[in-house]
Nucleic acid binder design. Structure first.
Length: 566
RNA sequence: UGGGGGAUCGUAUAGGGGUAAUACGACGGGUUCUGGCCCCGUUAACCGAGGUUCGAAUCCUCGUCCCCCAGCCA
């Protein structure tokens, strides 16, 4: 019998959904929604919400709607709508026919607002913005009633109608719910539900000059769509009272329930739309899809796969506690995915010339390489070998430290899938002492990488044939932000946190010739180095540019670091 | 301190009265034609004080600390 691993314990949201299903609370339906505002690009934090909402629906035979919360035309653009749709699709989710826009409901929303006025539960307030703020009170002190609070239903109806007709300027009047100016929950102190915004909307054009506020729109949109579980982040906990109030005071068909979970925070990462925008605007990154950005478009360009991101979102868990996930987990997830799927190839990032003295000058051999050492189904390929090669500068030391298993004067190592070579001489610039080339001899008996006499070599290094290698540009990415020092005496600002070394461009790397025509978006493992993506934008035919997605775990680097700190 | 929330290994999550578990990380070892992958092991936590109970991370009481709310943003 197969071992069945125990199912991962359900998070609190999934427990609620399961309980509701068990008690038949929503007649067996599960309807969720992912409700982005089209005012920016999606990032890894949104991925958490997307995976949750679509995940919960998919797991329970339900549906998840994609609904744009487009109630503020001053901030929203079609460009964002399109990028959001393609990012959600890329992540691997399908909303089917369930694509909605809050703006589709503007007529209904207006009608609902009129109902509220008629039942005496909403009024037009003509206080200017700063007075509204003043009347709202503070955290400790209750607010006081607006002088316009007791306007007659007829006057309210007339004014609201005229607001809609465009008779007033921005800010002249607003429609407010009449709830309780003394409520300890500030959200309930007669919240504004409609405001005048003389701005054309990316979907409704100039039809409207009044637009509903989030609190009024969201719950009603959920209700109109028959959403059962409305999942949002923690900062909306106070808003839930208003969400429920609106639905309870209007003749709606169904009452969805709102549940809140903690948003994702990641170490070494900023997630705020404002700061992300600042990075772009200040030219600190290359754009929204800079491979260092936590945006889905940035991660995609970096080379992260949807599968890895989904897996990550599954593993971070879900709770109501504010937390910060270690970015090492994200990196772990992409390594797991690519370890399984990426072809292994040879690339030398910082080339050091090696000359095999006893290898014929005019000879070239094609050697057999595994595309994936653990998956023979991925096949083999031929890689040329010749007298002059490049190896990694890091793989040679004049004076090897302890535990250094690579090449050094007199040492023998294996060239992966090729021959054993022994370093016999080092060519240096007489003036600067710079190493120009390494002279080695090879053992013809070790072709393919193993010796008939069974002798062992400690190290295996990667290489490319100098004459055959392709010159390529490679970008090494590191975390965009440094981790804040918890022991720091003073609060450090955004600028101090920026990692100045988040990008290193290597212009003259040498990669094996098979990479010449790699398609944009191809993900490979440069053996012993890391996983790399063929940049979809800067690569051109025959001239791939590689983005490092993530390095391989590097045990030697740790050993060396430990040695140096002694 | 008006209201709403939250506190479990370094980090993120399980555990809903009965042996505090899993993953990432860190550390050590095995294996190895990648110092990768894989395998094994070690490390390490219930915010505090009372109470209820044979037994409390879990239930109760009182504290402490952290987060959110005073947009005509979402």
């Amino acid at each position: 019998m197969d071992e069945i691993s125990p199912p991962r314990p359900k998070d609190f949201i999934r427990q609620i959904v399961a309980d509701d299903l068990a008690s038949n609370k929503h007649q067996g339906r599960v309807v969720t929604r992912f409700p982005p505002e089209p005012n920016g690009y999606l990032h890894i934090g949104h991925a958490k919400s997307i995976c949750l909402n679509f995940g919960v629906a998919n797991e329970n035979g339900g549906v998840c709607h994609l609904r744009f919360d487009d109630t503020n035309p001053t901030k929203e653009e079609v460009e964002y709508v399109e990028s959001i749709k393609s990012d959600v699709r890329w992540l691997g989710f399908d909303w089917g026919d369930h694509l909605f826009y809050a703006s589709d409901y503007f007529d209904q929303l207006y009608a609902y607002a009129v109902m509220l006025i008629k039942s005496g539960k909403a009024y037009v307030c003509s206080l200017p913005p700063e007075k509204i703020r003043e009347y709202r009170g503070t955290l400790k002190e209750p607010g006081k009633d607006s002088p316009y609070r007791e306007r007659s239903v007829d006057e309210n109806l007339d004014l609201f109608e005229r607001m809609k007709a465009g008779e007033f300027e921005n800010g002249a009047h607003v429609l407010r719910a009449k709830i309780d100016m003394a409520s300890p929950n500030i959200t309930m102190r007669d919240p504004v539900i409609y405001r005048i915004l003389k701005k054309s909307h990316h979907r409704t054009g100039d039809k409207w000059c009044i637009y509903p506020m989030y609190d009024f729109t969201h719950c009603l949109s959920d209700s109109i769509e028959g959403v059962t579980h409305s999942l949002c982040t923690l900062e909306f906990q106070d808003n839930r009272a208003l969400y429920d109030w609106v639905l309870e005071n209007l003749p709606v068909k169904c009452q969805p329930r709102q549940y809140e979970f903690a948003r994702l925070n990641l170490t070494n990462t900023i997630m705020s739309k404002r700061l992300l925008l600042k990075l772009v605007q200040d030219g600190l990154v290359d754009g929204w899809d800079d491979p260092r950005m936590p945006t889905l478009s940035g991660l995609r360009r970096r080379g992260y796969t949807p599968k890895a991101i989904r897996n990550f979102c599954e593993r971070i868990g879900l709770a109501k506690k504010n937390s910060e996930v270690d970015i090492a987990l994200l990196e772990h997830c992409i390594r797991v995915d690519l370890n399984e799927r990426a072809h292994r190839v040879m690339a030398v990032l910082r080339p050091l010339k090696v000359i095999i003295d006893n290898y014929p000058e005019d000879r070239t051999e094609d050697l057999v390489f595994q595309n994936h050492p653990e998956d023979t189904a991925m096949g083999t390929r031929m890689v040329p070998f010749s007298r002059e090669l490049y190896i990694e500068q890091d793989d040679f030391r004049m004076d090897p430290p302890k535990k250094f298993f690579r090449l050094a004067p007199g040492r023998e190592v294996r060239l992966r899938y090729a021959y054993y070579i022994t370093c016999v001489n080092v060519e240096k610039d007489e003036k600067t002492g710079e190493i120009l080339a390494i002279h080695c001899t090879y053992d013809p008996e070790t072709k393919g990488g193993s010796s008939p006499d069974g002798r062992k070599v400690k190290g295996t290094i990667h290489w490319v044939s100098a004459a055959h290698a392709l010159e390529a540009k490679v970008r090494l990415y590191d975390h965009l932000m440094n981790k804040p020092d918890k022991d720091a005496k003073e609060e450090v600002g955004f600028a101090d946190l920026l990692n100045k070394n988040s990008l290193e461009v290597l212009d003259v790397c040498r990669v094996e010739p098979s990479l010449k025509d790699a398609d944009p978006g191809t993900k490979v493992q440069f053996e012993r180095l890391g996983y790399f993506n063929v940049d979809p934008i800067d690569s051109s035919p025959g001239k791939p540019v590689f983005n490092r997605i993530v390095s391989l775990r590097d045990t030697w680097a740790k050993i060396e670091k430990a040695q140096k700190s002694k």
